[in-house]
Structures are given as C-alpha cells and as structure tokens.
Nucleic acid binder design. Structure first.
Lengths: 188, 188, 188, 188
DNA sequence: TATGAATGAGTATTCATTCAT
DNA sequence: GATGAATGAATACTCATTCAT
C-alpha cells in the first residue's frame, strides 16, 4: 500500500511523482488515495519511518546480543545496508526537511539523531570493550553512516563493474574495509 | 551569479526554489535571469559542474604528484571534502537525474562515473605501489565516496557535539579512520 | 436531525460545511445522512422552509385576530424576529438562489414573495383601518423586512453594547421605532 | 479590474465563482489574475473595502456639514443606499467571516463595527440637537442599517411592483418612513 | 439502518517560460 | 541589459454522491 509510494519516489523522485501517477500505479483514483492517507508529505513520512523502523529493529537486535561490539557492528551494518538498499532507501536518505512541514520535519530529525546516537554508542562500546579501535567516535559514525547511506544512491542502478552483491555482502565488504583499514600490515 | 543559485538550492532544495525567489535574492527580475541562463535545469547543471570541477582539479593535482598513492589519497580526500562542504555540495550530491532532461542528465552521469573511476584508480595504484591494502577497490571506493559525499548532508548544520572542524580536518579524520581501520592493533 | 444542519450552516456557512462535517457532528457516517436526506441542497431547502413555516404561522395567527392592523403588526414582528433569530435564521436570510437548482430555487422564491405579500397586506390593512399611516406600503415592507431579517446577522454574536435583549424585545424596539418615527413630536 | 469580481460575486455568489470564470470574464487567463491579486479572498476583501469606502466617504461628507443630524441622516442614507445598491453591495452585505482567513476577517469586522459606530453616533447627535427622537440608538441603528443593507438583496432583481426607484429615492422613502413613523398623527 | 470504500468533477494556486517593449 | 505582463501546464487537495454489503 505505502510501499508503492516508496517505489514511485525512488523511481521518479518525490517532486516528480504526482498523486495522479501514484493513484494510477495503484489502479485507483486520487481521492481513494486521500481516503487512506492524509497528504503527500504524510506519505513521505511513512516511507521514511518504515525504513528507519527497520534500522532501529537491527539496533534492538544487536543490543540483545551479548557479544563484543565488533560483532554487533557487523549485524547492524548488514541490517542498515538492507534497509537502505530496500525500496524505502530513497525516502530515508533523500528526504529533505524543506519538503515537510515542521510538524513532520521535527520527528524525522529526531529519528535521524537517534540513529546517529545509537551508532556512535556502538562504536564507543567497542572502544570500551576493546573490540574496536575508534579514534573519534563522532567522525567514525559519520563516515560509516555516510558510506552505508550512500548505498541508496548507487545500489539500485546497475552499478559499474561485474558481480552483483547482496546488500549484506556490500555491508560485509564495507565493514571489512573499515575494520582492517587500508594501511598495509607489516609482516611480523 | 551562479553561486546564488547553489546557495538557494542548498537552503530550500531544488524544487522549492522558484526562479522568482532566485531573482528576488539577486535583486533582479525573472526575465533578467533568463538573459543569463537558459533554464532552471541548466542552472542546476552548472552548479553541479562547478563542484565537480573542483574535485577533478584535486585529482589532477594528485596525479601530478610523484608520491605514493596513500599520500595522494589524503590530498584528494581533502579537496573532495572541501568541494562537498562548499555551497555546491548540495547540488553535487543531491541532483536527481529525474530532475534533468536526458541532454543534461547524460553528462552528469558521465562526470559521476569519471570521479568514481579516478578514485578507484587511485586505490588500485595504492595496491600496486604497496602503500594501500585495498581488498575490493570497487567497494572501497563506494565506501569512501559515500562517507565524503555525506558530508554535504550534515556539515552545514551545526552537527552534534562540540568542536567544529574544517572540511579538511573532517577529511583527515575520515582518512585516518579508513587507513588504520577500527581493529585494535596488537602491541608488537 | 435537520436542526443540526441549520446550526452547522449558521456556524460555518453553507459552502464551508461539508457533509463529512455534518455527519461527524451527528456521530454518523455520510451514507447514513443520505439515507435521510436526498442531497445537500435539499437540506438547505428544508432549513429554509422550517424557518419560513414559523413566520407563516405567525401571519396565520395574526390573521385570526380581530384587532387593528397595528396590533397585529406587533405580533407578526415578534414572531418574525424569533424565527430569524433562531437556528434557522441564517438559512432563511442567507440562502442564495445560485446555491440551489431551479427545482428548489423556485419554491423558495415563491415563499419569499408570499412573505413579502402578507407583510405588505398587513400594512395596507393598517392604512385602511386607520391604525397605521403608511406612505408607500412596498417600501415600508422592504424596510421592515430588512430590519428584521438583519437580526440574523448580528443577533447570535454578542452584539456590541450592554444588556442582551430577547428577540421579541428587539422586535418591540424595532416596531416602536417604526411606529413612532424618529421625528420629535411637538408637545401639544 | 476589481469591479469585475464584484459583479461576478454578485451574480453567482462567492463560492460559485471560480477564478476560471472570472478570468474568462476578463478575457485573460487565471495566472494573469494572480499577477494582480494575491488570492481569491483578497479579491473579496478588496470588493468589500471598495463598498465600505464609499459609505465612509458619505459619513465624512455628512460630518463636514453644519446642519442638524436629521438632515445629515438623509445624506448618509442616500450614500449608504447607493453603495449597497452598487456592484459592491453583495460583497459588503454577504461576506461571511468564515470565508476569510483571520488576517482579513479581522479588518472587515473592524470596518463593520466602525460603520455601526458612526451611524449610532449620528442618531445620538440627533437626540442631542433635538432634530431626532431616538429611543434606543443601538436598536435604531440596527433597524436602519438592516433596512438599508437589505437593499442589496432585492434591488438588483426586478423587485415586485411597478415603478423602479433610484437607490437615492429608496433611501428617501426609507428615511421618510423612519422619521415619520407608521403611527397616524391625530389632527390637532 | 448503517457503513467502508470509491470516484468524477472540480478549484485554488504555482511556476517555468516567453515576448513585446 | 532589463522588465512588466501574460500564459500553458500541472498539482495538491476537496467534496457531493454512489454502491455493494
């Protein structure tokens, strides 16, 4: 139901998707849409939330694990990548606060901050339990979030190069890169 | 002249910036705008190009250096971060190909691919000259580009936490994180 | 049942009252409304008629009296004022024939003419029986009807000034003003 | 320019006049309308003000006269009747505050109160200078205003009866009726 | 009796773009 | 170089009305 909107926004962009288009894609008429949803921006909001809920769920799952932060990071990254590569990815990553009234822009901002907080918390946990060597948790979180969010931009299109990876594989590759760093290790 | 457009797009978003607004911000009238620029999407294109030119220049500069790829990477990352944190950052990172006619969407896509290619090349160089230990250059490039591009999303607003960093400092922090990885090193 | 519509029209205006609003106010759903009433304009028509019936009843009552026209005028004015100050006042006074299809607009126009005719008749009676000194019965009827109708505009709101009068008192004041005129009487 | 709107509102009612109709009547297109006027309700507001200005001007004129209030009342009534019978009459008399945003509804209410105040003032002046015998200035003002306002309802249509009067003649008839009252004078 | 779901026909408003001056 | 005026096309949103259940 709301998934169709996410797909349309993903395909044409929020502003280039008229509710007429959307209604047509759902084989109903515009007023029918309004019967189920209050406004276009509410639709966008719901798409956003659907995606974020998935990420939150991943964090929740990780929180329930009794493993070092490093392993929890892998779980989170995979869930994050899957959410961002899903049909809701565009909405999560591209919403612009200017497209939303303050009433909805506020909650969205809050959710974004929450995600950022939990990611930073996870890195800090890693620093504490010794499983991660994070220099600046704030910057590390930004870098990691950026890398993951960006998946929404390139994943759907046939990204250049051969071999298509699943979102989880992409996440694994990213995490591997982040964990081991690009610096060559000297042989002992 | 074109910088005003970038600032307006950055502040209100492309679709929420009418040419009336833009003209008003420049203290001229709409037809005057059309005297200087062909269309709204051309404006967007120019903003995009202005930002990308800066990144290309950084790559050019790095190419002229005779240093290992690792050091060139630092130079590139700094220039990249500065470009993305500049007023053109939004345009570079947020342009949606659906907002542009094929005539302009093509070149933009080409420029994006070019940037990606050069970044990947740089990482491959590092693998060859032994200064970088890159597993999957394609994924590493995506991760790095994502982290850097994302700066455009959070840098302008007062990002949470104390201490405001310059874009170059952010780039350094990112590169440090990427180079050394998050995995704790055993003491020798 | 139909009274709720009158109140809603009075409060929000005919065009600003959607049947959704009305249904909500009655704690039912829109189709339920349609079970009881054929259309929105029929609703308006019924409200109009409810008010006019009351005025007609007053005229009937006056007609049954065997008193001079002057006293019957007082009775009519009171009933008229009460009708116009009632919840149906707005509908009676504000209906616009453009809001109604010809099928309903005709009867309404006929009722209006009928009221006008009876009022004029009453004034003419007064001229005949010597209890009223009416110059131009047509204009006098218009003036009187206008003064009384206008009550619907100002009565509901707390009209300026102290002391709230009942509709009948307002009618008495109006009639007194009309009967005695504004011209000072010379002392005998 | 704005007069066309008044005529259209008068003929079809505010809600039944679409801006398309209006634009068509002016032989322009809808956006051209918006070039000159901010919104539909602003249009209504201007119509209202145009009419009220005329009434205010009449009051101003009367204020400059050095005659007893009774004579000034005749002047005011004529001007009032002409304003109300003009193309702006409908707008003045029928505007509903629910059709206007608070921003415009406030000023309109203020103007209405102002008119009421001046009329009451005039009657009070008459009581003071002995040229008028007003019992309750408030009620008398309401009655007079109602009678005059109501002209807007019946004047345009071919009102029943023969002999078409000018608005000034109607005003004279009304004032005569009001001044002399309906009560027969006993012969001395 | 009552309703959930659906819709056709509007309606105000916006905006990129043009053109005569 | 610059602008006032104009417009075609689109778009979000509303509402009276219907109908199967």
């Amino acid at each position: 139901v709301i998934r169709a909107a996410a797909r349309a926004f993903d395909e044409h962009g929020f502003h280039n998707t008229s509710l007429d288009d959307l209604a047509a894609a759902l084989h109903v008429t515009k007023p029918t849409l309004y019967y189920y949803v209050g406004s276009k921006e509410e639709l966008l909001f719901e798409c956003f939330r659907a995606g974020v809920d998935r990420i939150q769920a991943t964090f929740d799952e990780a929180d329930r694990m009794q493993t070092p932060a490093r392993e929890r990071l892998v779980v989170v990254a995979r869930g994050y990548a899957e959410a961002v590569a899903s049909e809701f990815g565009w909405c999560m990553v591209r919403v612009e606060h200017q497209d939303l009234s303050p009433a909805l822009s506020g909650p969205i901002q809050a959710l974004k901050v929450e995600i950022d907080r939990r990611l930073r918390q996870l890195l800090a946990d890693g620093a504490r339990d010794g499983s991660l060597a994070v220099r600046d948790p704030r910057m590390a979180a930004f870098a990691l979030a950026g890398a993951l969010n960006w998946i929404a931009h390139w994943y759907r299109e046939d990204y250049p190069g051969e071999g298509r990876l699943t979102p989880a594989e992409v996440a694994d590759a990213f995490v591997a890169e982040f964990l081991q760093g690009l610096l060559p290790r000297q042989a002992p």
